[in-house]
């Protein structure tokens, strides 16, 4: 795996067209590749490089800065357990220990069946619902050890259909139809917006 398939290449072109400069689409395209393959494959980075007009080394340079991009396959479900201060105060570290012993793996590794990866992560912004974790970036609130066990059993049994496989972020994509685009061009081609000049000159009247 793999370059973008035909459908995803079309989505990639649509994403690139939303930016004044193609390189700005690098991170969204890395997500798209991860959605397709479950991780960010080398061939995918080469394809992204071709699409946005940079080298594959530059794509890798950007991707390796961000912890959500996995350059090797991970579990179908990546479980991010928050141990930062608000969660730590009410049992985040105990939850991590429980998860590690239940699944028999340490933070950062994947179960032998390829189902689960555990990560010890920084604040996931669910501080008032602590201890919190995310499964493929879907929130689980006030997770007791019992709730964690239920979560794992449900995931194994396919009872959590709202949680997609690892790689899919937002299930809804932005789409701008061609007739509704205002003005997306490279910065060199942009001038003062006509409405701005006109409306400041007339005190609010449209041109």
């Amino acid at each position: 795996m793999s370059r973008f398939n035909e459908a995803n290449e079309a989505i990639a072109h649509e994403i690139i067209a939303r930016y004044p400069r193609p390189k700005s689409a690098t991170i969204p395209l890395c997500h798209l590749a991860q959605e397709q393959d479950g991780y960010l494959a080398e061939d995918a980075m080469a394809h992204i490089a071709e699409l946005v007009g940079i080298t594959s080394a530059e794509v890798m340079g950007t991707a390796t800065f961000y912890e959500m991009f996995k350059l090797a396959p991970v579990g179908r479900y990546v479980i991010n357990i928050c141990t930062n201060i608000s969660c730590q105060l009410v049992g985040g570290e105990e939850l991590l220990e429980h998860a590690e012993s239940t699944l028999g793996i340490t933070s950062g590794s994947t179960t032998a069946d390829g189902l689960f990866t555990i990560e010890d992560v920084e604040c996931v912004a669910a501080c008032t619902e602590a201890p919190a974790c995310q499964v493929n970036y879907r929130y689980q609130h006030r997770v007791t050890p019992e709730a964690f066990d239920t979560l794992i059993a449900d995931l194994r049994a396919g009872r959590r259909p709202e949680i997609p496989d690892h790689g899919t972020l937002g299930a809804t994509r932005q789409h701008i139809s061609e007739d509704r685009v205002a003005n997306i061009t490279p910065p060199e081609q942009q001038v003062e917006p006509a409405w701005y000049a006109a409306r400041n000159a007339t005190g609010g009247e449209s041109a």
């Binding site: 969204p28 991009f69 205002a182």
Partner: peptide
């Protein structure tokens, strides 16, 4: 009106 502007959703990757 003549007021026109695009809003593009962009998302990060953990940093």
């Amino acid at each position: 009106t003549d007021f026109s502007v695009d809003i593009v959703l962009h998302w990060g990757a953990g940093a």
